[in-house]
Simulated scan of single mutants.
Amino acid sequence: MKSELIRPIQNRRLPLWRYEARRAGWTLLAAPLTALLVGVALALLAANGGSSRDQVGRMLLAGPEVLLPLTTGMAAVSMVARDGCRELQLSLPTRYAVTLGRRLGTLALAGAVCTLLFSAILGLTGLWAGPGPLASTLVWLPPTLWLAALAVLVGILGRSLVVATTVVAVVWLGELLFAAWFAAEGWARPFFLFTTVRFGVDGDWWTNRLALTASGLLIVVVVALLLRRPHQLLTEEEV
C-alpha cells in the first residue's frame, strides 16, 4: 500500500525535473560539456606543438578545474538573472528557493555527469594528471562549487546579469593572472581555485580543497538565507 502511494509522487517529480531542465535551457546545460571540449582542443594544440605528455595531461586537467567553474558559474548566474517569472513564482505555494534549487540542480547534475565521464576516459587512456580515483572529484568540484555559488550570490544581490557575469569573470581571470601571488601568500593559497593545474597535488592540496569546499558551502548558506525573503529579489520592473 505504501509503495502504491509513493509511486504516483515519484511519477510526478520526473516530469517536474524535465520541465525545470527545459526552463534552464539546453544551451546552459551544455556549458559543462563545452568547457571540457575546449580543454581537449587546447590539449590537442599543445600536443601538435610538441608539448610533452605531462604538459598535455595538465592541459586536459584545465578543462574540469579551470574552464568548468567559469562556464558553470556563467550558466548559473544566467538562470538567476534571466528568470522573468519571479513575481508569478512568488504567488505559488512552492517556494522560490525550491524552484531555483531544482533548476540549478539540473545544471549541477549535467556538470557532474560530463566531468565524471571525462575523468574516467582520461584515467583509462593514462592521460589523467590529477590525484587518484578516490580524490579525482576534488579536482573540479570545490572550485566549481565556489565560483558557481559566488555567481548566484552576486546575481541575487545585484539582480543584474551584467554585474554578476563581470564579477565572475574578474575573479576567475584575476586568479589566473595572479597565481604567483596566491602561491607566495600563505593565507591566500587555500582559496586559489586552480591549485591542481598550477601547483600539482602537493602538501597544501588537501587544505586548499577543504577550504574551497567549506567557503563554497558557506556562500550557499548565505544564498539560502537570502532566498527566505524572495520578495526582496524583485526589481522595480517586476514589482
Rank of each mutant, 00 (worst) to 15 (best):
E4L: 15
Q10P: 00
R12Q: 15
R12K: 13
R13A: 14
L16F: 14
W17G: 05
A21E: 02
R22M: 13
A31H: 01
L44H: 01
L45K: 00
L45Q: 01
R58M: 08
V66L: 15
P69K: 10
G84C: 01
C85E: 14
L92S: 08
L92C: 07
P93E: 03
A97K: 10
L100R: 06
R103T: 02
L104Q: 05
T106V: 05
T106N: 13
L107Q: 03
G111R: 05
A112R: 04
C114G: 01
L116A: 15
S119G: 09
L122K: 10
L124D: 08
L124E: 11
T125H: 08
G126D: 04
A129L: 03
P133E: 14
L134F: 14
P143W: 14
L145M: 10
W146G: 06
A148G: 04
V152L: 05
V154T: 11
V154I: 15
I156W: 13
S160R: 07
L161T: 02
A169I: 01
V171G: 02
W172V: 02
F178T: 10
F182C: 11
A188N: 03
D202E: 14
T207H: 10
R209Y: 09
L210W: 11
A211N: 08
V222K: 08
R228V: 03
R228M: 12
R228H: 11
P230L: 12
P230F: 15
L233I: 06
